[in-house]
Structure formats: C-alpha cells, structure tokens
Design a binder for these strands. Structure first.
Length: 199
DNA sequence: TTAAGGATTGACT
DNA sequence: GTCAATCCTTAAT
C-alpha cells in the first residue's frame, strides 16, 4: 500500500488527506519529524493562476510535473525555502504546499535551526519556517519522500478539517475562487490568514 | 540582454 | 499596524 498510490489524485483531493501525516527528514545533524496541520493545494493545468505551473512546465517547476510523492522545493524572496508534496500522475502538475505543522521529533535540532522562534508552535508555523525546521534545502528538490533520508507516514483515518482561501497568493483577486487551503481545527501551529500584500 | 516580480518572514512604529 | 531584505525566475525587448 503503498501509500504512494493515493497521491496520484489532484492536490485538491490529496491535500486534506495529508493533514495529520508525519514527515520525517534525517540529516547529518539528526532527525526531525513534523506532523502536518496546514496545507494548500496547487494545480498546474492552466486553471490555477496562483500556481507556479500555471504557464506550463519551466525549469523551476519541472518537479511538479514529475512523480507523485516527491518533494518540490523552491526558493522565494531569496531567503526562504518552501516544500511541496507532488501529487497527480507524472506529466500532470499538482502539489500540496506544506504551510504549517507541529514538531513531534527532534525538537532540539529544530530549535537550533530556528533560533529566532520563541515557542514550540512557532518552529514550523509558516511554509518557510517548516522547511527550515525540517531541514529542507533547495538541493532536496525532487527527492522521494518515501525513501531515505525522508519518510512520510500517513494518517490511518481521515481527520476533520477546515478549508478556506489560500494565503499570500497574488493574481487571484478574490481568493474565494480557490478555497484550497486546508487545516486542522484547534491547532496552534496553523499560520494566521494573510492576504497577499500587493493583491 | 534587460526589467519586473515573488506560494515570506522578521523587525520596527 | 507598516516596511525592508535580497537574488533567482520569468517575461519582455
């Protein structure tokens, strides 16, 4: 069961089922595992203007068109790395952006990487923070999340979740058209909603 | 070749 | 609440 099979659906269907999943990354420094509490879905078939893949495959987003279950890591504002879980069969771009989570293993290492965070819930509240805490680097783009140094443990049963407009995406105007942000209720590690500053 | 913008965060008023 | 940091990717000459 491979857990990988259900990732072949569009991200809009996959993202809510990834809530509560635990992603683990082992590096030279040690192991950090994070339970995902917040994700956003991005499609690439031309219907999603907020997606990097909206205008077709480019050098940067090629990973999103690849095998499901792999990691699409990208750089934004030059200071932050974010991680997506690639969905949909190879050839179709679709991904679930990991926006927030709770550190369940390797707290000390996560804290060391995120020295500015003040409390446990800030360690992975926000996409770039989560990537830093987990140890994702741009070089990890394309890595298989079901093979070392990564692993991905899916929840045994679906969780109850909430959904709403995506955060920080430009070019959507009314983001209500794309209520593809999913999060678990009552989780302090879910980032607060923020519109895009220029939207 | 050149110019414009960004799936954000952290610091400061 | 507002604003700067900072360089890579994409789109347009």
């Amino acid at each position: 069961m491979t857990d990988r099979s259900f990732l072949e659906a569009p991200a809009v269907e996959v993202a809510p089922r990834l809530l509560g999943a635990v992603i683990r990354h082992e590096s030279d420094d040690g192991v950090v595992a994070i339970r995902l509490t917040e994700l956003e879905a991005y499609l690439g078939d031309g219907t999603d203007p907020g997606s990097h893949a909206f205008r077709g495959m480019t050098k940067r987003n090629a990973t999103m068109f690849g095998e499901p279950g792999h990691l699409y890591a990208y750089f934004t504002y030059d200071m932050h790395t974010c991680g997506n879980i690639v969905c949909s069969p190879s050839g179709t771009a679709s991904g679930a952006l990991m926006r927030g989570g709770e550190v369940v293993e390797g707290h000390e290492l996560a804290r060391a990487r995120r020295s500015t965070s003040k409390n446990q819930h800030d360690l992975a509240r926000g996409p770039a923070r989560l990537a830093v805490a987990l140890g994702i680097r741009l070089a990890d783009n394309g890595s298989d999340l079901f093979a070392p140094p990564f692993s991905l443990e899916l929840p045994h049963a679906p969780f109850d979740y909430l959904s709403g407009p995506r955060t920080g995406v430009s070019g959507e105007g009314g983001t209500e058209k794309y209520p593809w942000r999913f999060w678990l209720p009552d989780e302090p590690s879910v980032s607060p909603y923020r519109r895009h500053p220029k939207a």
